[in-house]
Amino acid sequence: MEDFSLSINGKSIQVNVPSDMPLLWVLRDVLAMKGTKYGCGQGLCGSCTVLLDGNPIRTCAFPVGEVKGAKIVTIEGISEAGDHPVQKAWVEHVVPQCGYCQSGQIMSAVALLDRNPNPSDQDIESAMSGNICRCGTYNRIKEAIQTASKNL
């Protein structure tokens, strides 16, 4: 067990956990931040995506010991009132079906638009290819990203 000081959604938070514990379980089990989801544990599905210094990472395969002071942003932290342009576009296009993958989808979309505010269809496809949606909401995700890119 080790002490870690994490910057999550702009707040500094201390945790005492094994250094190999994936960030996902630190968020979900230790900090009770349940928005980030577990889908595969192997970096294959994207359900657990958060931003680390702005880059999308798969927290299920990212040991807390590797965070090393980088800034973490989770689904709970992209807006105060749930009104980030990506979130608004998600509601406008009624993207979710079951909704389980959508935190991860939204975080990948936010990361994409942060570095590429006007993505082409192909940019979207390659940026989103790490996120599985078993319900098959891919086309609405793409439309919502295009809408969000106009409202950034």
Partner: peptide, 14 residues
């Protein structure tokens, strides 16, 4: 539940 899902607040099993 669209907004709850888009904000990570929707409550699933886990």
């Amino acid at each position: 539940d669209a907004k709850d899902i888009a904000t990570g607040k929707a409550v699933f099993g886990a």
